[in-house]
Amino acid sequence: MKKFTNTGNKDTRSGFGAGMTQLGKTNPNVVALCADLTGSLKMDEFQANHPERFFQIGIAEANMMGIAAGLTIGGKIPFTGTFANFSTGRVYDQIRQSIAYSGKNVKICASHAGVTLGEDGATHQILEDIGLMKMLPGMTVINTCDYNQTKAATLAIAEHKGPVYLRFGRPSVANFTPEDQTFDIGKAVHLIEGTDVTIVATGHLVWEAILAAETLDKQGISAEVINIHTIKPLDNEAILNSVKKPAALLLLKNTTI
């Protein structure tokens, strides 16, 4: 069975922050907006390096989504940052009309999603965000598993034309994917080949799936692990090919879909 090494726990939001720092240097059209959570979203380095391209919106997320939509008119690539519940449910109608139906090139970047958020409790542990976002026309939905992948995804979505929801989080989790990976939107990553059961995992639970596969292996059960980092468009082929084998299917997710 293929082995994976945790190079040290890191928070996925810092992967986003590192991606933003890099984009600040490489892509002059990238602009960032934040609703009073710059430190939590790890956007402070971008803000310090490019104050003219950083917009502090205040605690006014609806306005942030509208301003982001407007910034695309004139060729900017806005990245909005706030917690996942304020990035989605709080502003669903604004995203639906001004961003999704209007086909605007806005990157909605959300931290503190799902139960893995922990301490902030149920009001903040949004599980509905991925389901909400994937119903919107033209919206790409990405949920990355570790620091390295989140950084790679942040760089990749700047090159993708169209609205994107990128979801990551606060806790430190295993960092095990390659440092210099290319991120293919919509292409699942086959982490482990197996024959008895397929575990399709997304986000912070991908590492848990790897640990589960190791445990199962010791018990003589061969588990396949797929990292489904893109929820929309979904890589149906990867999942269907995997379950063609005499396999049970297990979904590991930190969200209701």
Partner: peptide, 27 residues
């Protein structure tokens, strides 16, 4: 038409975004 509207209350925000883009573009 540069943005969808109909659900009320969103236009000033979008206009601000476009105005900010103009400033960044020295337009």
């Amino acid at each position: 038409i540069r943005v969808a509207s109909g659900s009320l209350g969103q236009g000033i925000s979008v206009a601000i975004g476009a105005a900010l883009a103009k400033k960044l573009n020295n337009d």
